[in-house]
Design a protein around this nucleic acid. Structure first.
Lengths: 259, 259
DNA sequence: CGAGGGATTGAGATTCATCAATCTATGTGG
DNA sequence: CCACATAGATTGATGAATCTCAATCCCTCG
């Protein structure tokens, strides 16, 4: 369920200490992965600015046009669609390095909305410059295709989870997947506790369950000694069993590691 | 004449009357949409053969490699994934002109399976030639990106349907969407009855419901005078009401009309 | 005419949603 | 520093939606 979404006028330019692409810590994850050092100044010229967004603020909205696409530099973002009845489906959680707002038809209206889950910093690229950028830099074009294919794969996997699994299986899968992605992104391959800012309602919107049922299911997972979420932290107690329960195939991890 | 490899043991080459790309009736829908007439002979040189598949036969399988990608020339095909517990989720129904088996990483194993829903005819393209084809023909590369973006959009829309709607809403949406696609593909914009070869179990696998519940729900749709399915025919009695019920937005039709 | 795959129907169990209330942590203004 | 407001988490009770099991029916095809 969605609250009243805020109007879209809340992207604040980062005034001081803008980072540069040559020193970007998430570049290995992002669109400019594979761009040669010597070309980075040039690709950066396509970046118009960095923007800061407060938690729970909308970045762009379904059905509207957007002049920019973004790379998420810092923070977490959720993509979602809303239904006429007010229900909300979270399509994907974006982590640092992920692209926001790319669509094949650069002029069409957005097919989904994006909202910040935490405070977030975005690198903005004017949409109108993309055709030129892609034409002039094949490695960026190739990278874009790879990222899209990965996202497609993730979307299809979620379709299976939501269509065919029970509540506890869906939540196990969802958390396991995110857990692996977070460890990979933040380069904490051994961590068993990771930052996890989603509310139970967010988890429900992502897995197609009500927040009440999410609560009960999390309780079950906790009591079974598999995992627990508290104070914005996800603690995994038995990764193997959790993967088993959710039907998570470890080979999926590769998919996240286009990095 | 170079000897081309055989894609798959149960795909039978079409011996007689192979069609040529220059006269292809589904080209406007397919990968070679936008290729200039003078270049078609050249693009066709990438096509190794046409193959025929019997209903219910597998075309390629999740977890295995595949030497070919295909354009569906005739018939219907379903993409699906299977879970450890034997459950199956249909990801998408492919109609003539759709591509089968494209993945960004051409060497990776397939992320889903494909099965023929009817007798089908496929145009096969050796996977290894794709990089060269894309490099040499920008309009094909661009087309590929468009088709992928459309598929992504469809996948996300299905995620919303399955995650947030009731059985009758899901089935209404699923049938409405397919109905519009079929009318568009077969150029019958006014038809209120279309060919529809899916079993109730297929519909269940696509919408995340059991075949029994699909049956009861179809009965309800019939009794409400909205639609009915019988002897492989989908009859729409009240399109407006059906779109309303399923939350189908007519603007989605454009999405299907990259054609 | 029999076999087999779908379609249909019924009965009962289970999962999950809904409604409603309480509780807890956190932040805010006075 | 406290009183209060608020969002999120938790729990209970109840009902609806959907699944499971089981039986029968109806085509189509050989």
């Amino acid at each position: 369920m969605i609250k009243k979404p805020d109007p879209c006028s809340h992207l604040f330019p980062v005034e001081h200490n803008q980072t540069v692409c040559t020193e970007c810590p998430v570049r290995r994850l992002a669109l400019f992965h594979g761009v040669e050092e010597k070309d980075l100044a040039w690709t950066q010229s396509y970046r118009s600015s960095q923007y800061k967004v407060a938690p729970r603020k909308e970045i762009y909205r379904e059905g509207r046009t957007s002049d920019f696409m973004f790379t998420l530099y810092h923070g977490w973002v959720a993509f979602y669609k809303t239904l006429g009845n007010g229900k909300r489906q979270i399509l994907r959680v974006a982590l640092p390095g992920d692209m926001l707002g790319f669509q094949a038809n650069l002029n069409a209206v957005m097919t989904h909305s994006a909202v910040a889950l935490t405070e977030a910093v975005l690198c903005a690229f004017p949409r109108k410059d993309m055709p030129e950028l892609l034409r002039n830099n094949l490695s960026v074009a190739k990278r874009l295709t790879e990222l899209n294919a990965r996202d497609m794969n993730i979307c299809q996997t979620r379709l299976v989870t939501i269509g065919q699994q029970s509540a506890i299986e869906r939540i196990a899968f969802f958390c396991t997947e995110l857990f692996h992605r977070v460890r990979s992104i933040y380069q904490q391959p051994e961590a068993m506790e990771v930052f996890f800012p989603l509310s139970q309602e967010d988890i429900g919107d992502a897995t197609g369950l009500t927040k009440i049922h999410v609560n009960r299911t999390l309780k079950a997972l906790r009591e079974q000694g598999l995992m627990e979420i508290s104070s914005r932290t996800l603690k995994i107690h038995d990764l193997k069993a959790l993967e088993e329960l959710g039907g998570f195939e470890p080979s999926l991890i590769q998919t996240y590691s286009l990095y």
